[in-house]
């Protein structure tokens, strides 16, 4: 067991956790932030993407103890004062989600894209989302939503 201190969605948290607990387990089981999903647990599907110090990573493949002192944003922390993030709004407007399981990771990944590239092309969006698998949407409305969000941000 190790003591870790993290800032999660703006709140400072100190917890004792097992050395081998990955971040997705910590978020879901210790903090009950179940919006971060686990689809493959081996860092391919992207359902577990969160931001660590402003960058998107796959939380299933990061040890919590490895992130001592980091600032973490999960899907639950993206909306501010009850208002959804423009990316979330765009996904809703353009039907960028169906079952919603891949969605938290997809949204977190897309938000990171716009930090790096304010006006991405369709191709750039599709390539960026390489690490996020969606089985429902055929991706088309996701790409449209990311473009829509880019135009609003």
């Amino acid at each position: 067991m190790k003591k870790v201190t993290l800032e999660v969605n703006g709140k400072k948290i100190t917890k004792e956790i097992q050395d081998h607990a990955v971040l997705s387990v910590f978020l879901r089981e210790v903090l009950n932030l179940t919006g971060t999903h686990v689809g493959c647990d081996t860092s391919q599907c992207g359902a577990c993407v969160v931001h660590v110090d402003g960058k998107s990573i796959k939380s299933c493949t990061a040890l919590t103890v490895d992130l001592q002192g980091s600032k973490i944003t999960t899907i639950e922390g993206l909306a501010k004062n009850g208002k959804m993030h423009p990316m979330q709004e765009a996904f809703k407007k353009l039907h960028g989600l169906q079952c919603g399981f891949c969605t938290p990771g997809m949204v977190m990944s897309a938000v990171d894209l716009l930090k790096n590239n304010k006006k991405p092309s369709d191709t750039e969006i599709r390539e960026w989302l390489e690490g996020n698998i969606c089985r429902c949407t055929g991706y088309q409305n996701i790409v449209a939503a990311v473009k829509e969000a880019a135009s609003k941000m």
Partner: peptide, 9 residues
Amino acid sequence: IGDPQVRNR
């Protein structure tokens, strides 16, 4: 290499 999240780590 990999995808953006893999490259970030």
